[in-house]
Write a protein that binds this DNA or RNA. Structure first.
Lengths: 136, 136
DNA sequence: CGGTATCCGCTGTGATACTG
DNA sequence: CAGTATCACAGCGGATACCG
Protein backbone atom coordinates (compact mmCIF):
# COMPACT_ATOMS: atom_id res chain seq x y z
CA UNK A 1 0.00 0.00 0.00
CA UNK A 2 1.84 3.06 -1.25
CA UNK A 3 0.47 5.71 1.08
CA UNK A 4 3.67 7.69 1.30
CA UNK A 5 2.33 11.16 1.95
CA UNK A 6 4.03 12.95 4.82
CA UNK A 7 1.90 14.09 7.67
CA UNK A 8 1.09 17.77 8.15
CA UNK A 9 2.90 19.06 11.22
CA UNK A 10 0.77 20.02 14.24
CA UNK A 11 -2.55 21.80 14.20
CA UNK A 12 -5.93 20.51 13.09
CA UNK A 13 -6.23 17.39 11.01
CA UNK A 14 -6.56 17.99 7.30
CA UNK A 15 -8.53 15.63 5.11
CA UNK A 16 -5.19 14.21 4.01
CA UNK A 17 -4.23 13.40 7.56
CA UNK A 18 -7.47 11.62 8.15
CA UNK A 19 -7.06 9.50 5.09
CA UNK A 20 -3.59 8.57 6.24
CA UNK A 21 -5.00 7.54 9.58
CA UNK A 22 -7.30 5.18 7.72
CA UNK A 23 -4.41 3.04 6.52
CA UNK A 24 -4.54 0.62 9.42
CA UNK A 25 -8.13 -0.03 8.49
CA UNK A 26 -7.03 -0.81 4.98
CA UNK A 27 -4.49 -3.22 6.36
CA UNK A 28 -7.15 -5.12 8.25
CA UNK A 29 -9.37 -5.21 5.28
CA UNK A 30 -6.70 -6.28 2.88
CA UNK A 31 -6.03 -9.13 5.24
CA UNK A 32 -9.61 -10.10 5.64
CA UNK A 33 -11.02 -8.85 2.37
CA UNK A 34 -10.83 -12.10 0.45
CA UNK A 35 -14.08 -13.71 -0.48
CA UNK A 36 -13.61 -16.43 2.14
CA UNK A 37 -11.40 -15.15 4.95
CA UNK A 38 -14.18 -13.93 7.17
CA UNK A 39 -16.24 -17.06 6.74
CA UNK A 40 -13.26 -19.11 7.83
CA UNK A 41 -12.52 -16.92 10.82
CA UNK A 42 -16.10 -17.12 11.95
CA UNK A 43 -16.24 -20.86 11.38
CA UNK A 44 -13.07 -21.39 13.39
CA UNK A 45 -14.14 -19.09 16.19
CA UNK A 46 -15.59 -21.85 18.35
CA UNK A 47 -12.57 -24.09 18.37
CA UNK A 48 -10.29 -26.24 16.24
CA UNK A 49 -11.73 -27.21 12.87
CA UNK A 50 -10.54 -29.75 10.37
CA UNK A 51 -9.95 -29.09 6.70
CA UNK A 52 -12.82 -31.19 5.45
CA UNK A 53 -15.10 -29.79 8.09
CA UNK A 54 -14.45 -26.31 6.74
CA UNK A 55 -14.89 -27.50 3.19
CA UNK A 56 -18.32 -28.87 4.03
CA UNK A 57 -19.35 -25.90 6.15
CA UNK A 58 -18.54 -23.15 3.74
CA UNK A 59 -21.00 -23.30 0.94
CA UNK A 60 -19.45 -22.91 -2.48
CA UNK A 61 -15.79 -22.81 -1.55
CA UNK A 62 -13.39 -24.74 -3.74
CA UNK A 63 -10.56 -26.80 -2.38
CA UNK A 64 -8.10 -24.49 -3.95
CA UNK A 65 -9.55 -21.38 -2.37
CA UNK A 66 -9.88 -23.03 1.00
CA UNK A 67 -6.22 -23.95 0.96
CA UNK A 68 -5.09 -20.56 -0.28
CA UNK A 69 -7.13 -18.62 2.22
CA UNK A 70 -6.07 -20.89 5.04
CA UNK A 71 -2.43 -20.36 4.14
CA UNK A 72 -2.77 -16.60 4.05
CA UNK A 73 -4.49 -16.48 7.39
CA UNK A 74 -1.83 -18.73 8.82
CA UNK A 75 0.87 -16.56 7.36
CA UNK A 76 -0.57 -13.48 8.99
CA UNK A 77 -0.66 -15.25 12.32
CA UNK A 78 -4.44 -15.43 12.49
CA UNK A 79 -4.66 -19.19 12.29
CA UNK A 80 -2.61 -21.90 13.93
CA UNK A 81 -2.25 -25.09 11.90
CA UNK A 82 -1.69 -28.36 13.73
CA UNK A 83 -0.84 -31.55 11.91
CA UNK A 84 -1.35 -34.86 13.67
CA UNK A 85 0.88 -37.57 12.26
CA UNK A 86 -1.89 -40.13 12.17
CA UNK A 87 -3.20 -42.13 9.30
CA UNK A 88 -5.32 -40.89 7.75
CA UNK A 89 -3.79 -37.45 8.26
CA UNK A 90 -5.55 -35.01 10.50
CA UNK A 91 -5.03 -31.24 10.32
CA UNK A 92 -6.69 -28.77 12.62
CA UNK A 93 -6.98 -25.04 12.34
CA UNK A 94 -7.70 -22.74 15.23
CA UNK A 95 -7.77 -19.00 15.74
CA UNK A 96 -4.85 -17.33 17.44
CA UNK A 97 -5.48 -14.84 20.21
CA UNK A 98 -5.30 -11.84 17.94
CA UNK A 99 -7.72 -13.46 15.51
CA UNK A 100 -10.08 -14.01 18.40
CA UNK A 101 -9.86 -10.32 19.17
CA UNK A 102 -10.53 -9.53 15.53
CA UNK A 103 -13.55 -11.76 15.64
CA UNK A 104 -14.86 -9.68 18.52
CA UNK A 105 -14.38 -6.50 16.52
CA UNK A 106 -16.24 -7.99 13.62
CA UNK A 107 -19.24 -8.27 15.88
CA UNK A 108 -19.91 -4.55 15.80
CA UNK A 109 -19.84 -4.76 12.02
CA UNK A 110 -22.25 -7.67 11.96
CA UNK A 111 -24.47 -5.73 14.23
CA UNK A 112 -24.38 -2.72 11.93
CA UNK A 113 -25.12 -4.86 8.91
CA UNK A 114 -28.08 -6.49 10.57
CA UNK A 115 -29.58 -3.26 11.80
CA UNK A 116 -29.35 -1.51 8.44
CA UNK A 117 -29.72 -4.33 6.01
CA UNK A 118 -33.24 -3.33 5.03
CA UNK A 119 -32.41 0.35 4.79
CA UNK A 120 -29.53 -0.29 2.46
CA UNK A 121 -31.55 -2.64 0.36
CA UNK A 122 -34.25 -0.02 0.02
CA UNK A 123 -31.71 2.67 -0.81
CA UNK A 124 -30.41 0.51 -3.60
CA UNK A 125 -33.82 -0.09 -5.07
CA UNK A 126 -34.68 3.60 -4.83
CA UNK A 127 -31.43 4.62 -6.46
CA UNK A 128 -31.86 2.20 -9.34
CA UNK A 129 -35.46 3.27 -9.84
CA UNK A 130 -34.35 6.89 -9.99
CA UNK A 131 -31.71 6.15 -12.61
CA UNK A 132 -34.31 4.39 -14.68
CA UNK A 133 -37.01 7.05 -14.74
CA UNK A 134 -34.69 9.98 -15.28
CA UNK A 135 -33.17 8.56 -18.41
CA UNK A 136 -35.45 5.84 -19.88
CA UNK B 1 -23.93 -14.10 -2.61
CA UNK B 2 -25.43 -17.55 -2.98
CA UNK B 3 -25.64 -18.65 0.63
CA UNK B 4 -28.86 -20.58 0.26
CA UNK B 5 -28.42 -23.21 2.94
CA UNK B 6 -31.39 -23.64 5.21
CA UNK B 7 -30.82 -23.22 8.87
CA UNK B 8 -30.81 -26.21 11.19
CA UNK B 9 -33.92 -26.15 13.37
CA UNK B 10 -33.43 -25.48 17.08
CA UNK B 11 -30.69 -26.86 19.30
CA UNK B 12 -27.03 -25.93 19.44
CA UNK B 13 -25.41 -24.06 16.57
CA UNK B 14 -23.56 -26.20 14.09
CA UNK B 15 -20.56 -24.89 12.22
CA UNK B 16 -22.89 -24.44 9.28
CA UNK B 17 -25.20 -22.22 11.28
CA UNK B 18 -22.32 -20.08 12.39
CA UNK B 19 -21.12 -19.58 8.87
CA UNK B 20 -24.60 -18.58 7.85
CA UNK B 21 -24.66 -16.06 10.67
CA UNK B 22 -21.54 -14.58 9.14
CA UNK B 23 -23.39 -13.49 6.03
CA UNK B 24 -24.25 -10.04 7.28
CA UNK B 25 -20.55 -9.52 7.80
CA UNK B 26 -19.95 -10.48 4.22
CA UNK B 27 -22.55 -7.98 3.16
CA UNK B 28 -20.77 -5.20 4.96
CA UNK B 29 -17.50 -6.21 3.55
CA UNK B 30 -18.75 -6.55 0.03
CA UNK B 31 -20.06 -3.07 0.38
CA UNK B 32 -16.93 -1.64 1.81
CA UNK B 33 -14.39 -4.04 0.37
CA UNK B 34 -13.42 -2.02 -2.68
CA UNK B 35 -9.95 -0.63 -2.70
CA UNK B 36 -11.18 2.89 -2.00
CA UNK B 37 -14.52 2.77 -0.19
CA UNK B 38 -13.11 2.96 3.30
CA UNK B 39 -10.76 5.78 2.44
CA UNK B 40 -13.69 7.75 1.12
CA UNK B 41 -15.86 7.04 4.13
CA UNK B 42 -13.12 8.12 6.46
CA UNK B 43 -12.37 11.21 4.41
CA UNK B 44 -16.01 12.23 4.40
CA UNK B 45 -16.50 11.53 8.08
CA UNK B 46 -15.83 15.11 9.17
CA UNK B 47 -18.33 16.76 6.90
CA UNK B 48 -19.22 17.50 3.30
CA UNK B 49 -16.36 17.03 0.84
CA UNK B 50 -16.10 18.06 -2.76
CA UNK B 51 -15.13 15.78 -5.61
CA UNK B 52 -11.79 17.40 -6.32
CA UNK B 53 -11.02 17.56 -2.64
CA UNK B 54 -11.38 13.80 -2.44
CA UNK B 55 -9.35 13.33 -5.57
CA UNK B 56 -6.49 15.30 -4.07
CA UNK B 57 -6.77 13.71 -0.63
CA UNK B 58 -6.76 10.11 -1.63
CA UNK B 59 -3.35 9.28 -2.86
CA UNK B 60 -3.31 7.21 -6.02
CA UNK B 61 -7.01 7.12 -6.81
CA UNK B 62 -8.02 7.62 -10.41
CA UNK B 63 -10.93 9.76 -11.47
CA UNK B 64 -12.69 6.73 -12.75
CA UNK B 65 -12.41 4.81 -9.51
CA UNK B 66 -13.37 7.82 -7.44
CA UNK B 67 -16.54 8.25 -9.46
CA UNK B 68 -17.38 4.55 -9.41
CA UNK B 69 -16.83 4.16 -5.71
CA UNK B 70 -18.75 7.32 -4.96
CA UNK B 71 -21.69 6.07 -7.01
CA UNK B 72 -21.72 2.72 -5.26
CA UNK B 73 -21.65 4.29 -1.83
CA UNK B 74 -24.41 6.62 -2.85
CA UNK B 75 -26.42 3.75 -4.20
CA UNK B 76 -26.15 1.89 -0.92
CA UNK B 77 -27.31 4.95 0.95
CA UNK B 78 -23.98 5.60 2.62
CA UNK B 79 -23.30 8.87 0.88
CA UNK B 80 -25.56 11.79 0.09
CA UNK B 81 -24.67 13.71 -3.07
CA UNK B 82 -25.59 17.35 -3.32
CA UNK B 83 -25.24 19.32 -6.53
CA UNK B 84 -25.17 23.11 -6.36
CA UNK B 85 -26.26 24.66 -9.61
CA UNK B 86 -23.49 27.21 -9.60
CA UNK B 87 -20.85 27.91 -12.14
CA UNK B 88 -18.40 26.32 -11.90
CA UNK B 89 -20.35 23.30 -10.69
CA UNK B 90 -20.03 22.26 -7.10
CA UNK B 91 -20.82 18.79 -5.84
CA UNK B 92 -20.59 17.76 -2.24
CA UNK B 93 -20.63 14.35 -0.67
CA UNK B 94 -21.47 13.64 2.94
CA UNK B 95 -22.01 10.57 5.04
CA UNK B 96 -25.54 9.53 5.86
CA UNK B 97 -26.40 8.58 9.41
CA UNK B 98 -25.92 4.90 8.88
CA UNK B 99 -22.53 5.52 7.28
CA UNK B 100 -21.60 7.54 10.33
CA UNK B 101 -22.48 4.56 12.47
CA UNK B 102 -20.42 2.33 10.23
CA UNK B 103 -17.53 4.68 10.64
CA UNK B 104 -17.80 4.24 14.38
CA UNK B 105 -17.71 0.47 14.02
CA UNK B 106 -14.65 0.72 11.87
CA UNK B 107 -12.89 2.28 14.81
CA UNK B 108 -12.64 -1.00 16.67
CA UNK B 109 -11.07 -2.48 13.58
CA UNK B 110 -8.57 0.34 13.29
CA UNK B 111 -7.74 -0.17 16.88
CA UNK B 112 -7.17 -3.87 16.36
CA UNK B 113 -4.98 -3.21 13.35
CA UNK B 114 -2.87 -0.71 15.19
CA UNK B 115 -2.38 -2.91 18.22
CA UNK B 116 -1.34 -5.96 16.25
CA UNK B 117 0.33 -4.47 13.23
CA UNK B 118 3.79 -5.44 14.41
CA UNK B 119 2.76 -8.92 15.50
CA UNK B 120 1.24 -9.67 12.14
CA UNK B 121 4.20 -8.30 10.30
CA UNK B 122 6.48 -10.51 12.36
CA UNK B 123 4.27 -13.53 11.82
CA UNK B 124 4.52 -12.99 8.10
CA UNK B 125 8.29 -12.76 8.13
CA UNK B 126 8.56 -15.83 10.34
CA UNK B 127 6.23 -17.80 8.10
CA UNK B 128 8.11 -16.88 4.95
CA UNK B 129 11.44 -17.67 6.58
CA UNK B 130 10.11 -21.07 7.59
CA UNK B 131 8.96 -21.86 4.06
CA UNK B 132 12.40 -20.94 2.79
CA UNK B 133 14.54 -23.06 5.10
CA UNK B 134 12.38 -26.14 4.94
CA UNK B 135 12.53 -26.41 1.18
CA UNK B 136 15.47 -24.36 -0.17
C1' DC C 1 -15.32 21.55 -11.91
C1' DG C 2 -16.99 17.14 -12.12
C1' DG C 3 -17.52 13.96 -14.52
C1' DT C 4 -17.84 9.79 -19.05
C1' DA C 5 -15.95 6.62 -22.46
C1' DT C 6 -12.69 3.30 -23.99
C1' DC C 7 -9.09 0.06 -23.80
C1' DC C 8 -6.49 -3.23 -21.48
C1' DG C 9 -3.66 -5.82 -18.08
C1' DC C 10 -3.61 -8.20 -13.74
C1' DT C 11 -5.21 -10.73 -9.99
C1' DG C 12 -8.60 -13.49 -7.77
C1' DT C 13 -11.43 -17.25 -8.51
C1' DG C 14 -13.39 -21.55 -10.38
C1' DA C 15 -13.02 -26.31 -12.75
C1' DT C 16 -10.62 -30.17 -13.12
C1' DA C 17 -7.22 -33.54 -12.34
C1' DC C 18 -3.54 -35.55 -9.74
C1' DT C 19 -0.79 -36.99 -5.05
C1' DG C 20 1.46 -38.37 -0.30
C1' DC D 1 -7.76 -36.90 4.52
C1' DA D 2 -5.60 -32.97 3.04
C1' DG D 3 -3.78 -31.15 -0.04
C1' DT D 4 -1.00 -29.44 -5.05
C1' DA D 5 -0.87 -28.33 -10.17
C1' DT D 6 -2.61 -26.42 -14.28
C1' DC D 7 -5.66 -23.94 -17.15
C1' DA D 8 -9.00 -20.58 -18.19
C1' DC D 9 -11.67 -16.63 -17.48
C1' DA D 10 -14.40 -12.44 -15.45
C1' DG D 11 -14.15 -8.29 -13.32
C1' DC D 12 -11.62 -4.81 -10.82
C1' DG D 13 -8.89 -1.27 -11.37
C1' DG D 14 -5.36 1.79 -14.02
C1' DA D 15 -4.23 4.95 -18.03
C1' DT D 16 -5.76 7.98 -21.14
C1' DA D 17 -8.76 10.94 -23.62
C1' DC D 18 -12.85 13.51 -24.12
C1' DC D 19 -17.34 16.36 -22.52
C1' DG D 20 -21.22 19.72 -20.36
Amino acid sequence: MPQTKTRGAGGTDTVEDIVIEACPVREVLDRVAGKWSILIIVAAARGPVRFTELERSIDGISRRMLTLTLRNLERDGLLRRTVYATVPPRVEYELTDIARELHQSLLSLTDWAERHRATISAARVAYDAGRLTEEG
